[in-house]
């Protein structure tokens, strides 16, 4: 079995988990939720094994030049999906809000599908600039940060869906229907903040390790190239979000929108810069 097949299996597991989460929201059956969570966990474990196997395969193909599977667009998109699951599963373990899976797994699933259907998965040797341990630290921290923001994004969508209905909802009885299954808006607002609290220090570390690496390779820790600048833009947005909590009027709906804008900027930083703008970073031209 090779890593590609394991990644296929991962995709199937994430798809199953997503469908089961939808089924849970529709059926309100707790067992379905448990199976959905187990399917996500299984997918995550298979993906972990696949990443390990791909790492091993790189040594088989390149000999001593093997490296962690974090160096081209395909590998980064796959790692993005893995990071999202990691953060999601940790938050699920702690907060046990099962419905969130329905809004987070689609992001991971979409990443896996995109990577497998349209990105090149060949294992190529690295150009000298990329042969650095800083690359590994940089990619891991950035992507875990992005994953925190992805979870916050999913939760924010849920918040906006629910708050709209809640405000129109009259009477004292609990809200029925699909939205009734969602966590309370206050809980969602808090989870949004929690996910960003996980993502923000990780992104900070990601920017710092990137700067350290640039300094080590080229002698400048900051050169305002588009990728760096966009990571700073994302950082500014989430810093604004964090401080917005202290000011009345910037929680709830506005916070959810800020989180959504933040994630859009994150995606642009990750993909848009390479596919639309040009710069020093290597994932472009995919």
């Amino acid at each position: 079995m090779d890593s590609g097949q394991l990644f296929n299996l991962t995709t199937v597991a994430y798809f199953a988990a997503m469908v089961l989460f939808f089924a849970y929201i529709a059926s309100k059956n707790k067992t379905v939720a448990l199976v959905a969570t187990l399917a996500s966990l299984a997918g995550f474990l298979i993906q972990t094994a696949a990443l390990g196997l791909r790492w091993y395969e790189s040594y088989q193909i390149l000999g001593a030049d093997g490296r962690a599977p974090l160096t081209n667009l395909y590998e980064s998109v796959v790692f993005f999906a893995w990071s999202i699951l990691l953060i999601y599963l940790l938050m699920d373990w702690k907060y046990k809000q099962r419905t969130i899976g329905a809004f987070v797994l689609p992001i991971a699933l979409f990443s896996m599908l995109w990577a497998q259907m349209s990105l090149s998965s060949t294992i190529d040797p690295l150009v000298p600039a990329l042969q650095s341990n800083w690359l590994t630290y940089h990619v891991i921290t950035c992507f875990l940060g992005y994953a925190g923001f992805a979870v916050a994004f999913g939760v924010s969508i849920m918040y906006l869906l629910k708050i709209g209905k809640e405000e129109k909802h009259t009477g004292d009885g609990p809200m029925g229907g699909v939205l009734g299954m969602f966590p309370a808006t206050k809980v969602l607002d808090n989870l949004n903040y929690t996910a960003i609290m996980i993502g923000f220090p990780l992104l900070t570390l990601g920017i710092i390790t990137g700067a350290a690496w640039a300094n080590y390779a080229w002698g400048t820790y900051w050169s305002w190239d588009p990728k760096e600048t966009w990571s700073l833009i994302v950082w500014f947005l989430y810093a604004a979000f964090i401080h917005a909590r202290f000011t009345r009027g910037w929680v709830g709906r506005r916070a959810a929108w800020l989180s959504i804008f933040g994630f859009a900027a994150t995606l642009f930083c990750y993909l848009g810069v390479n596919l639309v703008l040009s710069g020093l970073h290597s994932y472009g031209g995919a």
């Binding site: 600048t229 833009i233 500014f236 900027a265």
Partner: peptide
């Protein structure tokens, strides 16, 4: 908050 958003927004120009 205004300054952070302004920094984010204006930084885009240079990219």
């Amino acid at each position: 908050i205004v300054l952070l958003l302004l920094l984010a927004l204006t930084s885009i120009i240079g990219t």
